[in-house]
């Protein structure tokens, strides 16, 4: 079988398109490259979905943590403690066990023009259940980062905002938030990289693979178990993830430049390649 044929059959295998049966014998390098790459679609989806939603919840959590109201502050603190204090691995297991206990019903959500019917059973599928866990997890970590940045917003900028007569939402939207983002961005980039790494855990915990559709590590592990040779699939997996990490650094670096463009060159915080590595 030519490599082009393999690509045609398996490039979208992880999302259920193409050949139904996985290769069983005579694994070529091409098979492994194509299928593991196909699995990366899941990693991309998990990471992007969780980051996109988590960003907003993280902002809310950061504001909640610095809120004057005791219950709001405590709720935010506990949320952060719960998700930062326990392993993601356990969170996945626990979430899956809890989701399968939910009664299986369809809920209709009217959206004005159309109605979507939502099945609670979707929660036990990786595409929704795992994204929810990752979303809450990244919201807690980024919330802590944003909270730190929020406390570091220079007082002078806030006083200037007051002097211009800005208040409430306007002051937050125009002054506090952009500065908060600018300060938090290097650490947030780091969080994004770690979140993408965390997506590799999904199919190794509670969430089962449907129709042998899994992420990159699922296929890498499949090949390693079938060929008994770890020296090919895992390096391929590593190669894809290094590409992904470099992409994240590039994209976030661009955004960082945009966030800093109003500053004098000497004051710009460059997104250092040596970011603080730890989460």
């Amino acid at each position: 079988m030519s490599c082009a044929q393999t690509f045609h059959d398996y490039a979208l295998r992880s999302i259920g398109l193409g050949e139904r049966l996985l290769p069983r014998t005579d694994f070529t390098l091409c098979d492994q490259f194509v299928l593991i790459g196909s699995g990366m679609l899941w990693n991309l989806y998990f990471g992007i979905a969780a980051l996109a939603m988590g960003f907003f919840l993280a902002t809310a959590v950061a504001l909640g943590r610095s809120s004057q109201s005791w219950p709001v502050r405590k709720a935010s603190e506990w949320f952060i403690f719960l998700f930062r204090g326990s392993p993601l691995f356990i969170q996945f297991f626990l979430a899956y066990q809890a989701f399968v206990l939910l009664p299986r019903v369809g809920v209709d959500i009217p959206l004005g023009v159309a109605t979507i019917s939502v099945q609670t059973s979707w929660l036990t599928k990786a595409w929704l259940g795992a994204v929810i866990v990752l979303f809450l997890n990244t919201a807690a970590y980024s919330g802590e980062i944003f909270y730190g940045a929020l406390r570091a917003v220079p007082r002078g900028e806030l006083e200037a905002a007051d002097a211009y007569g800005l208040a409430g939402w306007q002051k937050f939207r125009r002054i506090t938030w952009p500065t908060l983002l600018r300060l938090a961005w290097p650490a947030y980039t780091n969080e994004a990289i770690f979140l993408f790494h965390a997506t590799a855990l999904v199919f190794f915990t509670g969430f089962p693979a449907w129709r042998q559709e899994g992420d990159a590590l699922y296929y890498a592990n499949y090949f390693a178990d079938k060929t008994f040779n770890p020296f090919i699939p895992y390096p391929i997996f590593a190669f894809y993830f290094i590409l992904l990490t470099l992409t994240v650094i590039t994209v976030f670096g661009r955004i960082n430049r945009r966030l800093n463009r109003h500053l004098a060159p000497s004051e710009r915080s460059r997104l250092k390649i040596r970011l603080p590595l730890v989460r």
Binding site: A200, L201, L217, A224, F231, A238, I242
Partner: peptide, 23 residues
């Protein structure tokens, strides 16, 4: 070595290192 853990998820090392070391 330092850059390595930045690019690759730790779980891949946990699956790979013990087998590779053993062999």
């Amino acid at each position: 070595y330092i850059a390595m853990v930045r690019g690759i998820p730790d779980i891949a090392f946990f699956l790979f290192v013990p087998i590779a070391l053993d062999q």
